[in-house]
């Protein structure tokens, strides 16, 4: 393929997913500047590997590369606050009562901070499901985790968020 056609094809198929790519990178890096660098690097990588993309879901393909780039970045810029999934305590068996939730009055910033506190595997599950509206199957393809794991991460992420938002111990 001519280089010009290749670029045009890439711009047509992959570049339109920049908002989803940026949103995922921003939530994983938790910072504007790093998100911008990671997204740029991910796009250059995606373009380099574009010949290996033989059709399919270009958004999921790009998001898998963005995620991979983010995790490489997180490895290189490890912060003490990054806890691993395994270090999380099991969620409490009882859910908080709906009255205790008061989600109607829930502040947007409070919600944002609670999601930021989640470990990256849980955070990305919430971002991909609730903000990008992706199916379990698509999330599984992006994160390389089995569908059952996607489900249990989402379940645990939500339990954890509910605990954070209702002031329960977690």
């Amino acid at each position: 393929m001519q280089e010009r056609d290749r670029l045009a094809h890439f711009e047509h198929l992959v570049v339109p997913h920049m908002p989803a790519a940026y949103n995922l990178a921003r939530w994983l890096t938790r910072n504007d500047h790093d998100a911008e660098d990671v997204v740029q690097e991910a796009f250059l990588r995606a373009y380099r590997f574009f010949d290996g993309f033989h059709g399919g879901d270009s958004r999921a393909w790009l998001l898998a590369i963005v995620r991979n780039t983010c995790y490489t970045w997180l490895e290189q810029n490890r912060r003490p606050s990054l806890s691993l999934e395994e270090s999380l305590p099991e969620p409490q068996s009882a859910d908080p009562s709906p009255e205790a939730l008061l989600l109607e009055r829930l502040d947007r910033e409070l919600l944002r901070r609670a999601i930021e506190k989640l470990p990256p595997e849980f955070r990305e599950a919430i971002v991909l499901r609730e903000m990008e509206g992706l199916s379990y199957k698509e999330i599984a393809a992006i994160t390389g985790a089995p569908i059952g794991t996607v489900m249990s991460r989402l379940g645990r992420a939500r339990s954890r968020l509910l605990q954070l938002l209702t002031g329960g111990s977690a």
Partner: peptide
């Protein structure tokens, strides 16, 4: 309720026009 709260809060981050231009 949690899903609805997240949806309603529009927590997505949007890339700036500057970063889009930089990547292009």
């Amino acid at each position: 309720t949690l899903r609805f709260a997240i949806e309603r809060s529009s927590l997505r981050y949007e890339p700036t026009a500057a970063i889009e231009g930089r990547i292009e």
